[in-house]
Structures are given as structure tokens and as C-alpha cells.
Amino acid sequence: MTVSKFMIRPRVKASTIIEVLISMIIIMVVFGIAMIIYANVTKSGLSELEIRAGALLNETLQNDEKDDAVSSRIFNVDILRIEQQVKSYDADGSLLEIDLVAYDVNGEKMAEAHKIIPNRND
């Protein structure tokens, strides 16, 4: 009995090129949607600078509440430009409204704070 050089092997069932292309397209669409969602989530979150600006404005408001002479001014802290506007809140001038806005180096608003305090100049 002689052994044949060519043995018949059972066929392995495989995917067609069309099936592979369709599955790759589906994977790419899902990956693209995931990247868009990831970009939106990271963009919408608060940055470290915004958190620091808010804390700085709150600290400034607390200091102004203790201070007797509060006035409108513009000052810089690190890379933030803070605009403080003080105006009378009521007709007799017994209350003051303090508006603080923090801007970054590009002029984009990072944080804002508002507070009404008693006027101690009287």
C-alpha cells in the first residue's frame, strides 16, 4: 500500500472578505462614536484653572467683607486678571454689591462671584 503525497484535508470554514469588511466598518463606527463622547466629556469638565479661579474669587470676597474700604479695581494673580466692581445695592447706600470676574491670559472668563455686604464706610 502506497501513501499518497497529497492527502485530502478537511476544509476549514472561514469568513468571506465581505464579512470581514463589514465587521471592520462596525468597529470603526463604534470607535469613532466613543472618541466623540470622550472628547465632549473632557471638554465639558472643569479645568484646574477654573477651580483655582473660583477659590481665589471666594477668598477675595471674604477679605473684602472684612475690609472697611472696598473699591472697584483690576488686579492680577498668577496668570489670572481679576476685575472687581463695587456699587451701591440699595438707595440709601447701606449695602454694597461686589461683582468679581476672573479672566485668563486669552481674555476668556474663568469664574465669577457676586456678594452683597454691608457698607462700613458710614
Rank of each mutant, 00 (worst) to 15 (best):
14 A>I: 02
51 I>G: 09
104 D>K: 01
30 V>Q: 04
62 Q>H: 11
36 I>Y: 03
8 I>A: 12
35 M>N: 07
82 I>E: 00
113 A>E: 06
122 D>I: 10
77 V>P: 00
54 G>H: 09
72 S>Y: 06
44 S>A: 15
42 T>Y: 04
83 E>H: 08
61 L>I: 12
92 D>Y: 00
51 I>F: 10
75 F>C: 03
122 D>M: 10
91 A>I: 10
70 V>E: 06
16 T>G: 08
115 K>E: 12
68 D>K: 14
49 L>P: 02
32 G>T: 14
55 A>M: 15
70 V>N: 06
45 G>W: 02
22 I>H: 05
31 F>D: 08
52 R>C: 07
75 F>Q: 06
16 T>C: 05
83 E>L: 05
84 Q>V: 12
65 E>N: 12
21 L>T: 13
117 I>K: 10
37 I>D: 04
29 V>M: 13
74 I>C: 03
72 S>H: 07
72 S>V: 08
82 I>D: 01
92 D>Q: 01
45 G>C: 02
119 N>K: 01
91 A>Q: 11
90 D>F: 01
22 I>W: 05
36 I>R: 01
95 L>H: 02
9 R>Y: 12
58 N>M: 07
101 V>Q: 11
47 S>E: 03
40 N>A: 06
30 V>W: 00
33 I>D: 07
84 Q>H: 07
7 M>D: 11
10 P>Y: 03
87 K>Q: 14
94 S>T: 03
109 K>M: 15
34 A>M: 13
82 I>Y: 03
109 K>N: 08
17 I>Y: 06
17 I>E: 01
4 S>I: 10
92 D>V: 04
89 Y>W: 04
95 L>P: 00
30 V>P: 02
98 I>E: 06
13 K>P: 01
95 L>S: 00
101 V>K: 15
9 R>H: 14
90 D>V: 00
59 E>S: 08
102 A>L: 03
8 I>R: 12
1 M>S: 02
120 R>C: 05
34 A>C: 13
49 L>R: 09
35 M>I: 05
71 S>L: 10
97 E>A: 08
20 V>Q: 00
33 I>E: 09
79 I>F: 00
102 A>D: 01
58 N>I: 05
84 Q>M: 07
81 R>L: 09
53 A>W: 04
83 E>S: 10
26 I>M: 13
62 Q>D: 14
38 Y>G: 05
30 V>L: 14
67 D>C: 10
75 F>L: 04
41 V>Y: 08
70 V>I: 11
69 A>L: 14
49 L>G: 04
95 L>W: 00
25 I>V: 15
37 I>M: 09
60 T>F: 00
42 T>W: 03
55 A>I: 10
8 I>C: 07
56 L>A: 12
81 R>E: 13
11 R>N: 06
61 L>G: 04
116 I>D: 09
26 I>V: 15
42 T>Q: 06
21 L>P: 06
114 H>L: 14
61 L>M: 09
95 L>C: 00
118 P>L: 13
54 G>M: 11
56 L>C: 07
51 I>S: 11
116 I>P: 04
66 K>T: 11
101 V>F: 05
72 S>A: 10
